[in-house]
Design a protein around this nucleic acid. Sequence first.
DNA 1: CGCCCATTTGATCAATGTCAATAGTGGTGG
DNA 2: CCACCACTATTGACATTGATCAAATGGGCG
Lengths: 252, 252
Amino acid sequence: MRSDALHGQVQPHPLLRKLESIADLSDEERQAILALPMNVRVFEAKSDIVRDADRPSDCALVLDGFVCRYKILPDGRRQIMGFYIPGDIPDLQSLHLQVMDHSVGTLVRSSIATIPHQNLRELMRHHPGLAEIFWRDSLIDAAMFREWMIGMGRRTAFQRTAHLLCELHVRLRAVGLAGADGYELPVTQNELGDALGLSTVHVNRVLQDLRSEGLIVLRGGSLSIPDWEALKITAEFDSAYLHLKALARDVG
Amino acid sequence: MRSDALHGQVQPHPLLRKLESIADLSDEERQAILALPMNVRVFEAKSDIVRDADRPSDCALVLDGFVCRYKILPDGRRQIMGFYIPGDIPDLQSLHLQVMDHSVGTLVRSSIATIPHQNLRELMRHHPGLAEIFWRDSLIDAAMFREWMIGMGRRTAFQRTAHLLCELHVRLRAVGLAGADGYELPVTQNELGDALGLSTVHVNRVLQDLRSEGLIVLRGGSLSIPDWEALKITAEFDSAYLHLKALARDVG
DNA sequence: CGCCCATTTGATCAATGTCAATAGTGGTGG
DNA sequence: CCACCACTATTGACATTGATCAAATGGGCG
């Protein structure tokens, strides 16, 4: 038994939380995770953690904050390809893809733990079960990319925006970082636009539409969702693609 | 030495070709791959290999043909999320994600080898190097999703279409299935639209533009690219995201 | 020959982008 | 505590891309 199982209030390691949201861990595996060497470093808002074309020698675990994966096109336009929250390792792929094909950066001041590839490789060599779980995590990441593709290819700006808000809600809840009816969303409309493939101006209008339909209350980076079912329906949101372990009684 | 190394003309196993395009294999690993049990089955054009919500117990290896990953939305619209060619295993993720969150189907009559999960797991248990390579493959898949997202979010229909044609060319060449200046593209304009997030009508117009600019010659499923550099430039195509092993002297 | 499917064309419409200006808002130095 | 600054949000007018609808053309095949 882990010691903090005695009182539910204690926050376990963010990475443990995350992994346990998508798979079961043995005590041994938990210990091994906790034993990983981590170099914690605080990044200011809007700064890069890893850059396009880098060849990282370690992975970045988000401990606190809000991070995104993005790519800048030749003409300066930016596409954000995913948001990452505490417990996520946005550059896990660098373990097996030497060269970064995009960048990873913070949206707000974030604390990031750096874990050498070498230690991750050793961990997985000794714990094949964990290797599977990390692989699984990267597959879920890919599933999120697919879902975003569906949105950008076939959903309206309105639906797509609602869908993103649903995704973040479910993911944040899965690691205990969202309340029952909302969460902190420290993302500017410009950043939302880059993630959704929309202009800032249009994001602004879509958000107003979502507000006026009573689907969201968004004010100063704080989002609340008065009627989850309604939002879910307009977004055509089905959390199956997140492949979370326990969705039964939860949102989703 | 593998026996067919004696004469370069012999086509090795499609899966070997594919894996060797993204990583180095030892002779032992090659043998192990060749020893995989495969159940070959021919699928007619436009038929499903695996369906959304299925729980597959094996993976599908494309031996011949042209396959795609897609999802149908509630209102019937379709988004194609990737094209798969001989050597690809489009549902590799089913190894670690129990439930399919989309479908995989053929575009043309294709022969598909079915490999039980169990055998793949055993293979990887005995050959951890192969596990890494398969993981790497799934990460490259994810990189392609990201690139498509960039296209749908931030590129015009024109650029995006050109980009897709570039991607397919490089991927087909990497496994020896494309000539120096073109390849067979057995995909209807409707299917292209579903992949690019465009209407069929618009795809038609974009293709005409590409033709009239002399960037492509497309006729009856046969694509030729008169000036690769020109197409690459208009598409802003950089093959880095495909993480192929040898791009040096090749297209890319 | 006739049919089915894919391609092509034209006309019009709707969603979203772009440009430019105006308001908030929070943080900072004085 | 206040004025100022930089960034973010909001609004309006207009431009553009790409969707939609409808119809015609073309090709392959039983």
